[in-house]
C-alpha cells in the first residue's frame, strides 16, 4: 500500500517537472541574419529571429538573458509572453540588446531560450566582444597571426555560428621579389584570412620615387600612390591594381591617363634603365577597414630585383650580342 502510493507520487512529480518532449514533433527551425559586429557602448540594437515548430504547441515563450562573461553575473533578461504556435507557423521574435549600458571590452554573454510549458526546447548561448579597430604594421610589429575574439554570431537550429577575424601573415614576404626589373608584380605578396570574402573599404599602394622617374604620376612627399584591390575569392588574399595603365612599349613609361601611342595594360611598369633608382625602394600597401574588426593593415616591403630585363649579359635576362666579320 505505502509502496504503490510512493511510486504514484514520484510519477506525478516527474510528470509535473519535466513533461516528455517528442523531439521529432518539435522539429525546431530557426532562421536569422548575422548579428554584429558591434562597437563598445554603441547604441542599443534589436536582435530578431524567426522560428517554426513541427507541431502545434501552446504555452510557448521566448527568453533572452544577458550576462557578464567574466563573473557570469546576469545583467538583465527579457521574457516574452506565452503564446500558441501552430504547426510550421513562423514566429518572429525581437529582443532589445542594451549595448550602450553593458557592452565593453569584457564582452557580453547572451543566452537564448525557447520554452514549451516550462521545458526549454532551445537553449543556446554565445559570447561576443566589441570590435578592436586598430592599425597593424604587419612587418614593423612582426605580426605573424592576428586573431580576434568573436565579434558576431548567427543563431541556428542546432548551434550558434560565431564570426571573428583570423589573419595569417606567416608566409607573407616582407619584400616584392622580382626576378627582373620590369613590371611591378604583386603576385609574391599574399596573406591568409579565415574566410573567402574579406571586407575592406579601400586599398592603396605607394611607391617611393624621390627622383620623380614616374613622370606621369602625382608625387606626394616623394611617393606615388595607386589604388589597389584585394583578390578576394579564396582564403589566400592577393593584390592587384584597381585601374588599368597606359604604357609606352619602348621605354615602359607608364601613365594612368591615355597618351597617344601608349598601349593599355593591367600591369604597372617601371621605366627602363632606372633599376638603380628603384632597387630596394620602399613600397607601402595600406588596406583600410579589413574584416569585422575594421583593422588597418600596413605592409611596408622592399622592391628587391636581381636583374635587368635587357642589358649586359651578366646581369640581365636578355642581352644583345654582336659580332663583326
Amino acid at each position: 500500500m505505502h509502496k504503490s502510493l510512493l511510486v504514484g507520487a514520484v510519477g506525478i512529480l516527474v510528470g509535473a517537472v519535466a513533461p516528455p518532449i517528442d523531439e521529432e514533433k518539435i522539429n525546431l527551425n530557426i532562421t536569422c541574419s548575422q548579428f554584429g559586429p558591434y562597437q563598445a557602448y554603441q547604441s542599443d540594437t534589436t536582435i530578431g529571429f524567426k522560428y517554426s515548430l513541427g507541431a502545434f504547441r501552446d504555452s510557448v515563450y521566448e527568453e533572452m538573458r544577458v550576462y557578464d562573461p567574466v563573473s557570469n553575473t546576469q545583467y538583465y533578461k527579457v521574457t516574452k509572453a506565452k503564446h500558441d504556435v501552430g504547426k510550421y507557423e513562423t514566429v518572429s521574435v525581437n529582443f532589445d540588446l542594451r549595448l550602450s549600458g553593458y557592452f565593453d571590452y569584457r564582452g557580453l554573454k547572451i543566452r537564448f531560450y525557447i520554452y514549451y510549458n516550462t521545458t526549454s526546447i532551445y537553449d543556446k548561448s554565445v559570447t561576443i566582444y566589441p570590435i578592436e579597430k586598430s592599425t597593424v604594421y604587419v612587418y614593423e610589429d612582426n605580426v605573424k597571426r592576428l586573431t580576434s575574439k568573436n565579434v558576431a554570431f548567427k543563431l541556428g537550429s542546432r548551434s550558434v555560428s560565431t564570426f571573428y577575424d583570423d589573419f595569417n601573415f606567416v608566409n607573407t614576404n616582407d619584400f616584392i621579389d622580382a626576378d627582373s626589373y620590369y613590371s611591378l608584380d604583386l603576385k609574391s605578396l599574399n596573406f591568409l584570412y579565415n574566410q573567402s570574402a574579406m571586407s575592406y573599404s579601400s586599398g592603396t599602394l605607394s611607391v617611393y620615387d624621390p627622383k620623380m622617374n614616374l613622370k606621369h604620376f602625382d608625387h606626394v612627399e616623394g611617393k606615388v600612390t595607386l589604388p589597389i584591390e584585394v583578390i578576394n575569392k579564396e582564403e589566400v588574399k592577393g593584390f592587384k591594381f584597381k585601374d588599368s595603365f597606359y604604357v609606352d612599349r619602348l621605354d615602359l613609361d607608364t601613365s594612368t591617363r591615355y597618351i597617344p601611342g601608349y598601349v593599355l595594360s593591367q600591369d604597372f611598369y617601371f621605366p627602363v634603365n632606372k633599376k638603380r633608382d628603384f632597387l630596394g625602394t620602399k613600397i607601402e600597401i595600406i588596406l583600410k577597414d579589413c574584416g569585422y574588426n575594421k583593422y588597418t593593415l600596413i605592409f611596408r616591403v622592399n622592391y628587391d630585383v636581381y636583374r635587368d630585363l635587357i642589358g649586359s649579359c651578366n646581369e640581365s635576362d636578355y642581352c644583345v650580342k654582336g659580332k663583326a666579320s
Partner: peptide, 15 residues
C-alpha cells in the same frame, strides 16, 4: 666591307 650581326640572347633565367 663589313658584315655585322646582332642577336637577342636569352640568358636562360626563365623569364
Amino acid at each position: 666591307e663589313r658584315t655585322l650581326n646582332y642577336e637577342v640572347f636569352d640568358n636562360g633565367y626563365g623569364s
